[in-house]
Design a protein around this nucleic acid. Structure first.
Lengths: 200, 200
DNA sequence: TAAGAATTTGACCAACTGGTCAAACTGACG
DNA sequence: CGTCAGTTTGACCAGTTGGTCAAATTCTTA
């Protein structure tokens, strides 16, 4: 059973995870140091290791949280809803997560690019299952004629690719697009694209 | 002026860059070590530093090469060609590069995710200019009625996002799609998407 | 083939790494 | 106020890091 956290524990666990997210998202696991996380969180290095067993434990706590948040919106897609609107709702939700939590997106991206050494089992397990179910649903919608027939997997990949691009490649987007907000227009473009793809 | 490389220099420079690409693409600059590159290239660590001044020099040589290869296909787009086919040609070329050179793609991705500390000037300079020109061309095509009016920047972002996704997130794609080649179907999906987006 | 140039290496270094530990400090609560 | 669990830290450690250097080895070419 889980003991309730003290006030200080709650504060410090949260400070460490927040600092870890910032550092790991930028430098990856191997490129990040406890000293960086210590400096970022305002705690001393030994104190950090009082709250987390190791550097790896911080990283894994972040990944675990991330995967939960990532997968839930896929599960929230309503098979009884309007197909195009449901897919659109999901895509917009994903885009909003990119805008609100770009560091989480980047942390995930670095983990995947590095070959997902710590979460490969989740990818081939939970993630795969969830996506397979969604693909079945999309195919079912296509068979029923509610949407145009498209490869469901590549449809999903394209939604992921585009939404995450705006978070992961933010410096590049900003270098080209300028500093003004690009998410507004991105949403419109994404909606236009998906409607064109899904409407007969 | 550049002295011609000896046989050995050519061989070793190439071996080091190849090894560096492999290591840097996986762990990013800070996460990679000279020992890893040494082991991967079959050379001793001091010998590597005989050919490159520092770890950073190897990384920068790779990035410079990369940016050239990345930008050229954009420049190769023919303003006099058929608009849809030209954009399609570019997108397919980019996808082929993701299939043939996934490590280069990942190296670039890690650099951008980390905030592009070493190539930000290229992003806001050369890259920005090249993309701006392409955007003007696309708008021109749209004005002439040869393609549907779309935001040219987000069109370009979507092509980049999707093509690079198959290289950078390869483990995730494979976890879901299985080990069989996904690039074939990806090309078909991409073509379908772009034709839908660009055809009136 | 001999000499000089190019290449390779083992030994080494200072800075940094993740992590430990005993001692000191702080806060909550009877 | 006293006590004790909970918290914080300075000093420290062994392993790793990027990089140096003089000496040894191998190539090339006159």
């Amino acid at each position: 059973m889980k003991k309730t956290e003290t006030r200080i524990q709650k504060k410090n666990h949260s400070a460490i995870k927040s600092a870890g997210l910032k550092v790991f998202a930028q430098f990856g696991f191997r490129g990040s140091t406890l000293d960086q996380i210590a400096a970022e969180s305002g705690l001393s290095k030994p104190n950090i290791l009082y709250y987390f067993a190791s550097k790896e434990a911080i990283y894994e706590a972040l990944l675990a949280q991330l995967l939960t948040d990532w997968l839930q919106p896929v599960r929230d897609i309503d098979p009884a809803g309007d197909p195009v609107e449901e897919i659109l709702k999901y895509a917009k939700h994903k885009l909003k997560m990119s805008r609100l939590y770009p560091r989480e997106s980047r942390l995930y991206a670095t983990e995947i690019i590095q070959g997902a050494p710590r979460i490969k089992s989740v990818l081939t397990g939970e993630l795969r299952d969830v996506v397979e179910n969604l693909a079945l649903l999309i195919n079912h919608w296509a068979d029923a004629g509610s949407i145009r027939a498209v490869d469901p997997y590549h449809l999903i990949f394209s939604i992921w690719a585009m939404t995450q691009h705006y978070a992961d490649f933010e410096v590049q987007v900003k270098a080209i697009w300028g500093e003004r907000d690009h998410f507004e227009d991105a949403e419109q473009y994404l909606e236009d694209m998906l409607r064109r793809m899904l409407t007969v």
